[in-house]
Simulated assay, not measured.
Amino acid sequence: MWNRIKALVWKEFLQLRRDRLTIGFVLVMPLAQILIFGFAVNTDVKHLPCVVYDESRSQESRDFVDGLAATQYFDLKSRVDSEAAFTREIDMGRAQVGVWFPPDYARKLRSGGTAEAMVVVDASNPTTASNAIATAVGVSQMRGTTLLFQRMGYGQATQPIPPIDLRVRPWYNPNLRSPNFIVPGLVGVILAMTCVIYASGSIVKEKERGTLDQVMVTPVRPFELFLGKIIPVIGVAYLQLTVLFGAARLLFAVPIAGSVPLLYATALFFIVPMLGVGILLSTAADTQAQSTQMAILTFLPMVFLSGYIFPIEGMPLFFQGLAQIIPLTHFLIIVRAIVLRGAGMEAFWPQLIKLTVFGMVVWSMALRVMKRASA
């Protein structure tokens, strides 16, 4: 009996050794998860892009900005000269934090009064916003304490009047509600999963049933075959998009601040590349089990590295670069810009270009693999 069991066990190991995809699924996926969670996952985000509107133009305001930069949580990206430019930098997503000093900021500090300053934070991501707010308030308190001790030393502070009154304004998600950030991103994740998994089984089913060869000997071209496979999925994806945003609005009170037609139009720039990924996997796989494994291997890194849960700004540079070739990364920027900030196409046209380029590349690869397989 034991000899028969040993022979069966040895046979299974031999089959496993020949199945490289299963070995990759068993070994590579856990290793990738360890690397991602160990290196890329970081909720303590630093180097947030910051814009400064300094009407005071004084040494006191520059000292405050230097204090913010010294924490490494803020990177000064630009200085603007008008309220409109200040608002535009944050609306366009070029800055996540804005600091505004009124003209009398330095005069009030020098006269022993309380000077006001304002910090605006893009609260689309509550985790990032909370860290930014806490850091800015901490810098303000430290700077205020230093000024208060100086006043006491000069005999100017007979009463402990706070030197700095920092006004914090979280924009786009003023209550820092997590559903406002999570739910729109979840829509993108579900769309990606639907497109990749559904499309990854479309061609390989024909292979397993033996009908693919019959189709290929007809006048149908590979591109026409692909169109016939993906057009129904596009309809399903748009139906899914409608149901998900309807549920988000009714169940979680997630507002859609921007244009709904624009949201639907830009979704196509994401759906088509993701279907291309699924079709590419389907043409490369020989069985449905292989296509499912390849889809999971492809999909899980997308979720973790796209900024859906963990901010990309907190990842090492290597993973930040890797995130730029993931379509979900760019669609999340688009959907959150429209839903939360009410932004127009001028705020995310670079993401649309990247999605278009990615779609052209992945569909070209799928067509090349399909032609090679049918030759």
Rank of each mutant, 00 (worst) to 15 (best):
R4N: 05
L8P: 00
W10R: 15
W10A: 10
F13K: 06
L14S: 07
L14K: 12
L16C: 02
T22F: 12
L27R: 01
V28D: 05
V28E: 06
L31T: 07
L31I: 08
A32I: 07
F39N: 15
F39Q: 14
D44S: 14
K46A: 14
L48D: 00
Y53Q: 13
E55T: 11
S56G: 12
D63V: 00
A69S: 11
T71A: 10
Y73W: 03
K77N: 06
K77L: 10
S78L: 10
E83M: 02
A85N: 14
F86H: 11
D91H: 15
F101L: 07
P102Q: 14
A106H: 13
R107C: 02
S111I: 09
S111G: 14
G112F: 07
G112W: 03
G113D: 09
V119D: 06
V120D: 06
N125A: 13
N125S: 06
A129Y: 01
I133M: 11
S140A: 14
T146C: 00
L148T: 09
M152N: 12
G155I: 07
T158N: 07
N173S: 10
N175V: 12
P179K: 15
N180G: 02
V183E: 10
M193D: 02
T194E: 12
I197W: 10
K205T: 07
V215W: 00
T218R: 09
V220M: 11
V220D: 03
P222I: 02
L225K: 03
K229G: 03
L241G: 02
V243Q: 03
L244Y: 05
G246A: 07
A248K: 01
P255K: 04
P273Y: 08
M274K: 04
M274W: 06
G276M: 05
T283Y: 09
T287I: 01
Q288N: 12
Q290F: 07
M294L: 14
F299R: 02
L300P: 00
P301K: 15
P301G: 08
V303Y: 11
F304Q: 04
L305H: 01
Y308A: 12
G314A: 11
Q320M: 06
G321D: 00
G321C: 06
G321P: 00
Q324M: 13
I325T: 08
H330L: 11
R336Y: 09
V339M: 07
G342W: 10
G342S: 08
G342T: 06
G342M: 11
L355S: 07
S364G: 09
L367T: 04
V369K: 09
S374L: 01
A375Q: 09
